[in-house]
Design a protein around this nucleic acid. Structure first.
Lengths: 326, 326
DNA sequence: TTGAAAGCGTTACCAA
DNA sequence: TTGGTAACGCTTTCAA
């Protein structure tokens, strides 16, 4: 492996000049530049990234801290990696599996200057503790944060859910069921609020027994349908709004298996508008996740390079995509 | 930010000794160690990761180069990140989006010593070119490689497909259709070979028109069913073997929509045995992807630390998981 | 336009 | 058990 010193000696110039060539400084004569570039080529020279990082005090690496990578994160991850790379940054994955100690590893790596900044998804550590790492570098959250120190690009799902509710009511559905995820999450609370408000607005009867918690994935969606069908005499909902598209897929799949017609016997609305909803033709609420990832990156850049012109956050909105299930 | 030099000065010991404390060298008296650790604590000191990397000549970072992250890669990515982190390595994502130049970025980063090693998934650059980067560090592939320089942890899908074929024939299906992916891929060739051999073995009629190419995802699976149903008079296959579980999901979903009974009217076998197959109750061929990721990491470790005891590759096998679609 | 030298923050070798 | 000091490979400031 050749290094800058060798290039300097061989070319007869100093390390400083060679460095200038490397960094395209204008203060190098064309002749000198040519000589040095030629030698670099001959020696198959490339600068050592670590040395640059140490010297400059920045790694051009951003850590992404999450419990684990799943379908919902995919567009966020892909978009973030892509945006970062366009701006010369690489993305390092830190998965915690829900283990608080492992999660802290990402934050410690910020402290140790292995990464310049951090994006966090759902974190399990105390938010105050996480916030204390702000002094080591910028951090931005995808999840909604109670903490003001860590800015968030998350959107209020109240708006998105309201869109879904208005849509199904507009279509004539009145017996509305909710398939919620984690009951205590801010998302569920926001959605429930939207549900309560709209039922009141249209003077529709609230069925508390039609709000289900802990419905996360395909299987729970399927089970939900079976549960609903268990008692033949009971009145049944005519539409289910889901916490995500996986749940919606499970519901649609099981409903068809039970020979229910979708949407005639049971309508379904997903959430996030993922590939799955597109593929299966499920009405869903578009959640601009990829754009949120972009915003997250630009937020980090703005505090990483305070001198440069700030990139403004893109203003994002939910949006209902009607397909064959409503 | 405090550094090792400050700790040395404040404690009255040399940098060398402080470094020894950091690296748990046994050649430090307990008293000295205590003093130094105390000062480190007081100053909230952590060593700078970049400096360590530069000095040691290793980054403890491994690059993962892929076209993009999708559902199929998920278990590989998760398992690799997890295994690496257990061994003190972080994983950096490089997505190319199929762009050869962007893909090379990962390999250049190996050359520039930003990563110690590389795992590659489907790569678009010339394999010989990629192989030439072996001199900069170990590389292991997930895809099957023609090149001997780059070892691969991929498995021969002939074996897995054969398992599926034997299964459906054992169940009494004889009108077998194939939903293949990319026609020229080694995987498709292996699968087709298995198909040909088994049809011969059981003396079953080969229907060339029942081998479909370019069937990658849910939507193509759905379309395939509609195409099959188009002509009422035609004889139809009684089972379809799919290139992956997404395709199988699409087929099952569309079949039910068209009021075909699965598996009575049409049986379906997926591939990879992903969450989706599990969730939807689709018979699938288990592809031990997570274990392949582990193998990939250990392969890299073996050449990264030739001195240490070699971790043997886990011997992996496909395995049929029968569910409700056969 | 160029060079000398002092960082950047560690590790590791050789002495003591 | 400890210390001195030369790496590691680059950037950057100050002079010339």
């Amino acid at each position: 492996m050749s290094n800058l010193d060798q290039i300097a000696k061989l070319s007869g110039f100093s390390k400083a000049t060679v460095s200038r060539v490397l960094n395209q400084s204008p203060h190098v004569s064309q002749a000198t530049r040519d000589i040095i570039l030629k030698i670099m080529n001959e020696l198959d020279y490339v600068p050592n990234g670590n040395a640059i990082s140490l010297s400059k005090g920045q790694t051009l690496q951003i850590g992404m801290c999450t419990e684990g990578i799943n379908e919902v994160m995919l567009p966020f991850l892909n978009s973030f990696v892509e945006t970062a790379s366009q701006n010369g940054y690489q993305t390092i994955i830190y998965t915690s599996g829900g283990d608080a100690k492992k999660e802290l590893q990402a934050f410690e790596d910020l402290r140790r200057k292995r990464v310049d900044a951090l994006v966090i998804s759902t974190c399990v550590n105390d938010q105050a503790l996480l916030g204390s790492y702000r002094k080591y570098g910028p951090i931005v959250a995808w999840q909604r944060m109670e903490l003001p120190e860590i800015p968030s690009v998350a959107m209020n799902q109240y708006d998105g859910y309201m869109l879904g509710l208005e849509h199904v009511i507009g279509q004539g559905y009145t017996r509305i069921a909710n398939a919620f995820g984690r009951p205590s999450s801010m998302n569920t609370l926001s959605r429930f609020k939207a549900y309560q408000e709209i039922m009141k607005k249209y003077d529709l009867p609230v069925h508390p027994e039609w709000s289900f918690n802990g419905i996360y994935s395909i299987r729970e969606g399927e089970q939900l349908v079976r549960d609903l069908l268990k008692d033949d005499n009971e009145e049944r909902p005519d539409v289910i709004l889901c916490s995500n598209d996986l749940v919606a897929a499970g519901i649609v799949s099981e409903a068809r298996k039970q020979l229910l017609k979708v949407p005639e016997d049971l309508a379904v609305v997903g959430f996030d508008n993922t590939e799955l909803a597109h593929s299966l033709g499920i009405t869903s609420i578009d959640n601009p996740i990829a754009a949120q990832a972009k915003n997250a990156f630009h937020l980090l850049m703005n505090s990483l390079n305070p001198s440069e012109v700030k990139v403004h956050q893109e203003k994002l909105q939910f949006c209902l995509v009607k397909r064959a299930t409503t």
